[in-house]
Amino acid sequence: MWKVLHQIAVCYWLQVKVTSTSWFDGVLAVFYPLMFATATLLVYRVRGDADGMQFAGLGAVVMGMWTCQGVVAASALARERWSGTLELLVAAPTGMPRILVPTTLAFSTVGLYCVVVTFLWERWVFDLPLHITSWPLFVLGVVVAALTLSLFGYFLAVTCVRYRTAWAIGAAMEMPGWLLCGFVVPLALLPTWLHPLSWVIPTTWAMEAVRDAANGSSPWGHLGLALLVGAGYAVIGGYLGRQLVDSARRHATLALT
């Protein structure tokens, strides 16, 4: 047990260092959503509606977590391939979930940094103090968003293992994700046929929990749903990961050369 925890901790810390010092996966993953949050707040600010600013401000704070996870996780294994370490990871006696989940947890950690930066940016640049009724529950909501996103990121990473340009899939998911999770647009405004897509993303529920914590409602129901959906992705990711990696090894297509 101690060995497993040690391996997970080492893997997590190594990936935190790798990601946070990367200009593309670390710095840009924070800067890019911050600029989109700025554009969004500029739109909401035109009307000067305080409720609208509170809604957009809360969503913008969490929005960056999606970028830090979704975009980066999709190409996590592709980057290992570019570095020539994918075969080593697959051949290692340690299972893929024990390598990939700490990796995606590291991406979520950069996402948490993005939350703090956006929060301060809104306060200092937009003079927008967000009204949070329960800070402990707000922080819990953000942590659950990070945790469930990392499980979603794990699912994404294993599904894209055979896709040579996985980064493009991740990049294309960025803005649809911002829309579907209801960060800066109320889900009720989206067409009804899109709602089921929102429901199967754990961050949608985590975002609702964050809003609950901010306005004083009970977030426990939404937190439970977020954890449930996140666990679903962990199970599917675990199964798919084994199938896809086994298939890639059997057909000698891991390197995609």
Binding site: A39, T40, V43, Y44, V46, R47, D49, G52, F55, A56, A171, A172, E174, M175, P176, W178, L179, V184, V185, P186, L189, L190
Partner: peptide, 20 residues
């Protein structure tokens, strides 16, 4: 193809939500 359309939809819906 996907990204530009997604960006257009994102800000069109933000505009609707903000009523701008």
């Amino acid at each position: 193809l996907i990204e530009p359309v997604a960006q257009i939809l994102l800000f069109a819906f933000i505009g609707r939500s903000a009523g701008v």
